[in-house]
Write a protein that binds this DNA or RNA. Structure first.
Length: 585
RNA sequence: GCGCCCGUAGCUCAGUUGGAUAGAGCAUCAGGCUUCGAACCUGAGGGUCGGGAGUUCGAAUCUCUCCGGGCGCGCCA
């Protein structure tokens, strides 16, 4: 609808260009918007206000000229000029009826478009280190990333979902060591757990699995483990201590033994994360291992590309990337003095590889604490000859959990953070996903467990699901009365849908494709969540104002066609959000 | 110190190429079930859009400044 009105406007402007208007305005400037107030019609444009200066005419005069130049259309019942120079469109009934028929004929596909033109997009999200279970912050990133991918896919982008497994580097070594120390404890050795180790209970579970797999094969006496180590915190340096301990572990159980513990811990953690996400309705097309990526030589390839373009230099025994040439505040190390490549090197190589795999657009869904990192990776991409704007980062703000008014403390250090699994078990997947998505990702989220669990009017999830279930209930009632819905008659009788609530439902219903597009372009799934609430609201209002199962058969079928349209759109929207649409509740 | 994000009703938040009288939910108050599901609906009150200045026909939206909150600034990942 909206696009057709914009086409009409463009045609009008084309006619005026040369006489009334000096230059043809940019097509992107020609926009029609939904009105907020029904008094102003269905759609409006402020075009005359925008062009008035360039045309050197007063806005109302220009608006009159535009309206007179508009081609005739069956869409528009009438136009009027209002306020300072707005052009308001009052739509004819026909376009609404056509749109309702489209909902019925397209079903689950209604709302899809070809906006993205098949452009290949890689959405990378969650990518949490496999050193512990996912927590509630990852849950938000998972819900956001999965939903954004769904929405982009719906509007015609060719989307791939990817999880990057940070399975190389020191954090994995620390997890491995933590597991081994717990395993030794389980064997009966007495040692103090390192300050910098992973303290969560899940590490004990890993240790038990290890014991089940190897028995006491990897047991070493505590005295040998602890001999001649630097002091741990608080007296000493906890980083130096744990690095020494990792080194000691490698000496005592050998590189192979260490590797064996690492593989077991990694496999267990990944299985946990994968299962957790799958239960949450979040699935990935690719799980990319950093370790495998590094072993493939891809980092060396990226460094060679940088070297060839003259962006590297050596200083203090390390290799540096000249990030300052791209606006960064300082140059960045890519190969350390000890010969190890940095995380940054691996990450720009990874992003280069994404491009080389054929993705036009790279969307990284990151925690808000990563914001300083984006510019650097972009600089790396540009230095390697890639367009800087192909990389887009959406930063997801943090989640605070509340139980009513009481804030739940979260700290990895104490090992008492709330996991996504715990959260889902407590409030359920539907409420969980909806609560994550109903706020802008740019806004810190206060997640109230009591509210999410409440089966009450305070809970917006049920409000929307209830509308869906109510329609299902109406259809059951219809069957119970021995009646049947006649779709063809219902759609043909659209002229009977003239009541104010019916008009409001039609207006809201037909906004859906626009909302999906807007949510996609703005990377804003929450816009869809808000819309669904509004649609549920106009439906509930209609439900309370009118009976649907009336004796007048054409009227009954027209109303049923309308509410079935509402049900379809609710179902489609909830599907994008990853929330179920129950027939009864 | 430098950088990024945020500040809108009592509370939680929508409000994106600047646009008409700034909107929802919750809470409060007043109403609505003999009817297809009351997990619903109708109505009312509630605002210096953090403060100030600027840009212009027009600013919650753009710019500057100040105040307040969150987060980043490693040869860690």
């Amino acid at each position: 609808m909206k696009q057709e009105l914009e086409q009409l406007l463009l045609a009008a402007l084309a006619r005026l260009t040369g006489n009334v208007l000096p230059d043809p305005p940019a097509a992107s400037a020609v926009a029609v918007e939904r009105t907020r107030d029904a008094q102003h019609g269905d759609f409006a444009t402020n075009l005359a206000l925008r062009l008035a200066k360039a045309a050197r005419r007063n806005p109302r005069e220009l608006a009159t000229a535009i309206v007179e130049a508009l081609p005739a259309s069956s869409l528009v019942a009438r136009t009027e000029i209002a306020g300072a120079g707005y052009i308001n469109y009052h739509l004819a009934p026909a376009p609404y009826a056509r749109e309702l028929a489209a909902i019925h004929s397209q079903g689950a596909a209604y709302g899809e478009s070809r906006l993205g033109k098949g452009e290949r997009v890689l959405v990378e999200f969650v990518s949490a280190n496999p050193t512990g279970p996912l927590h509630v912050g990852h849950g938000r990133q998972a819900a956001y990333g999965a939903t954004l991918a769904n929405i982009l896919s719906a509007v015609g982008f060719d989307v791939a979902r990817e999880y990057y497994i940070n399975d190389a580097g020191r954090q994995m070594d620390i997890l491995t060591l933590s597991t081994w120390v717990r395993y030794l404890e389980g064997c009966g050795e007495r040692l103090v757990f390192p300050e910098n180790g992973y303290r969560g209970d899940y590490v004990r579970a890993l240790a038990q699995k290890l014991a089940a797999a190897v028995g006491e094969e990897l047991r070493r006496p505590a005295a040998a483990v602890l001999a001649n180590l630097p002091a741990d915190a608080p007296a000493g340096d906890k980083d130096a201590y744990i690095d020494a301990l990792i080194e000691r572990a490698r000496e005592l159980i050998g590189a192979q033994g260490f590797r064996r513990v690492l593989e077991l811990a990694l496999a267990e953690m990944l299985a946990d994360i994968r299962g957790d996400l799958a239960e949450f309705g979040v699935v990935f097309d690719h799980w990319t291992s950093e370790r495998a990526f590094a072993e493939s030589g891809a980092i060396d390839h990226a460094l060679a590309v940088l070297e060839a373009s003259g962006r590297l230099h050596r200083q203090d025994g390390a290799v540096w990337f000249r990030a300052t040439e791209f606006g960064d505040e300082k140059d960045r190390v890519v190969v350390r003095e000890n010969g190890q490549k940095t995380y940054f090197a691996s990450d720009i190589a990874y992003h280069l590889a994404k491009r080389e795999r054929g993705f036009a657009r790279l969307i990284d869904v990151l925690g808000a604490d990563h914001h300083g990192y984006v510019a650097r990776v972009r600089a790396g991409l540009i230095a390697m000859g890639q367009p800087g704007d192909c990389l887009e980062a959406t930063l997801i703000q943090f989640v605070s959990l509340f139980r009513g008014a009481e804030k739940i403390p979260m700290g990895k250090r104490e090992g008492q953070f709330v996991t996504l699994r715990q959260l889902r078990a407590e409030v359920g997947n539907d409420a969980c996903r909806f609560f994550y998505l109903m706020r802008s990702h740019e806004q810190p989220l206060d997640f109230d467990l009591e509210l999410a669990k409440a089966r009450s009017n305070e809970n917006p999830v049920y409000y929307i699901q209830y509308a869906h279930a109510r329609v299902a209930s109406v259809m059951k009632q219809l069957a119970a009365r021995g009646l049947f819905f006649e779709r063809v008659q219902g759609l043909a009788a659209h002229a009977l849908l003239s009541g104010p609530q019916e008009q409001a439902v039609l207006r809201s219903l037909t906004r859906y494709p626009e909302i999906v597009e807007q949510a996609a372009l703005n990377r804003a799934p929450h816009a869809l969540a808000h819309y669904l609430r509004e649609l549920a609201n106009v439906f509930h209002t209609y439900y309370n104002a009118q009976g649907f199962i009336v004796d007048d058969t054409p009227l009954r079928n027209a109303r049923l066609a309308l509410v079935l349209g509402v049900q379809q759109v609710l179902r489609n929207g909830l599907a994008l959000l990853g929330v179920s649409a129950p027939e009864s509740m």
